[in-house]
């Protein structure tokens, strides 16, 4: 049982981080808070990917002779791409938030929904 927990607890911590981000995305009314939640959510997924590639006793994936044991470099490549794409997504979200603020004068989702309702 103890061995099982030691082998898996890392994944459970990532799930907890994901839950924090997810909670911020769906329950916070402030749009910037939602974006912060989204960033936290993303990093938890990155952690999961990189952990899968971890090899006990392996070294950093930089050539050190054919005998060396290396950590799996493939997840690192995928996550490098994902980090940059994540920032692009955040940038577009920011542009939308700035536009919403220009239009409504607030970035609170509740207030915006109220205003839209009164317009109809």
């Amino acid at each position: 049982m103890m061995e099982f927990i030691l082998a898996k607890y890392n994944y459970w911590i990532y799930v907890i981080i994901m839950m924090i981000g997810f909670y911020a995305v769906i329950s916070k009314s402030n749009l910037i808070k939602k974006i912060i939640g989204l960033s936290i959510f993303q990093t938890s997924v990155f952690l999961l990917f990189i952990s899968i590639g971890k090899v006990d006793g392996g070294t950093v994936p930089i050539y050190q002779g054919t005998e060396a044991v290396y950590i799996n470099p493939l997840p690192h490549v995928l996550i490098l791409t994902a980090i940059v794409v994540g920032v692009s997504v955040t940038a577009v979200a920011f542009a939308l938030v700035v536009n919403i603020y220009r239009e409504f004068g607030t970035i609170e989702e509740n207030a915006i929904l109220e205003m839209i309702k009164h317009d109809d």
Partner: peptide, 20 residues
Amino acid sequence: STVLFIAVLTRVKRREELTR
């Protein structure tokens, strides 16, 4: 990403409002 966040915060309200 921090620079982007701060750039946006200069344009919008900096406090989260407690609506409910």
